[in-house]
């Protein structure tokens, strides 16, 4: 479902000495089926932005429109919006609470008021989607490994069958194998027709996975473009406390040494091909 954000501003604790402006006049729209990366320095407003998508924070002032429904409207059923937009927080495994994996994943669907049979179907489906074997579903979520816990927590959101999935740094704190596995999973979910919005600190992941990047800086949208376009502004990104993918750095260094590689490469495979082409071409 398309999401439109119009002139969104958010200030925490207005009128107190602790007043902080988290977002300022943010306008953007997200189309169905996109894979959008949100990057920005700590405190740039990423988390505040994604909390708005799920109606956890009421837009004021500004508007957030999820599939034609104005989130800020009084009397608007929030559960409907939360069903539409699934939100996976950072370290989602810390929100597990039920006695069994199955019950925990079923928490969201039960809150939607679905009948037990339907809940069961959805739980099984979500668990298989994240690659949790069936025999674990009767276990306590606290007995699982860290990576498994996280996948169970993500299944808990998937079981609500959202049309848009928002993830706040989904791979933080995982080992390299766990990261790859989870990123692969997110890609699969995206291929299944779900719009994905992912907050990340890894420029490499952003470059590799996302079709479009939104760069936030001090609560404002600094860039909103495909990765190739965004990573051309390397110096500005560094100034914002961000970085460019390793391969973009490599291209820059090689060009300084006399290579003539194009500056719109941001995936390792493309860079490899370009280098080979240039070396063989010589």
């Amino acid at each position: 479902m398309p999401i439109a954000i119009k002139h969104l501003t958010h200030t925490y604790m207005p009128g107190t000495p602790f007043e902080t402006r988290a977002l300022f006049d943010v306008s953007l729209s997200i189309r169905d089926g996109e894979f959008v990366g949100v990057i920005g320095h700590t405190g740039s407003g990423k988390s505040t932005l994604i909390a708005h998508l799920n109606a956890l924070i009421r837009p004021e002032p500004g508007r957030v429109i999820v599939s034609g429904v104005d989130v800020g409207q009084k009397g608007q059923s929030l559960i409907e919006i939360r069903r539409e937009v699934g939100l996976v927080f950072q370290y989602p495994e810390y929100q597990l609470f039920e006695e069994t994996v199955e019950k925990d994943v079923g928490y969201g669907p039960r809150n939607l008021g679905l009948p037990d049979a339907e809940v069961k179907v959805r739980v099984a489906e979500a668990l298989s989607q994240v690659g949790i074997p069936e025999e674990l579903s009767g276990k306590s979520p606290f007995e699982l490994s860290g990576g498994q816990k996280r996948r169970v927590a993500i299944a808990g959101v998937l079981a609500m069958r959202p049309s848009t999935l928002v993830l706040d740094e989904p791979v933080a704190g995982l080992d390299p194998a766990g990261r790859e596995e989870l990123l692969k999973l997110i890609q699969d979910i995206h291929k299944g027709g779900v719009t994905v919005i992912m907050v990340t600190h890894s420029m490499d992941d952003a470059a590799r996975l996302c079709g479009r990047l939104i760069v936030l800086n001090r609560g404002e949208v600094a860039f909103d473009a495909p990765p190739a376009e965004v990573f051309r502004h390397g110096d500005e990104l560094v100034e914002m406390g961000l970085d460019v993918p390793e391969c973009v750095k490599l291209v820059k260094r090689l060009n300084e040494c006399g290579f003539h590689l194009p500056d719109n490469l941001f995936r390792m495979e493309d860079v490899e091909r370009a280098i080979l082409k240039e070396v063989r071409g010589c």
Binding site: R82, R83, F89, Y94, V157
Partner: peptide, 27 residues
């Protein structure tokens, strides 16, 4: 944080009877 995470999963901490609200605190 946890409250927000559970609200994102459809939890409702603010309405319902006292008993229902107490039960909603478990997550």
């Amino acid at each position: 944080k946890i409250m927000k995470a559970q609200m994102a999963r459809g939890a409702d901490f603010e309405s319902g009877s006292l008993f229902k609200r107490a039960k909603a605190m478990v997550p």
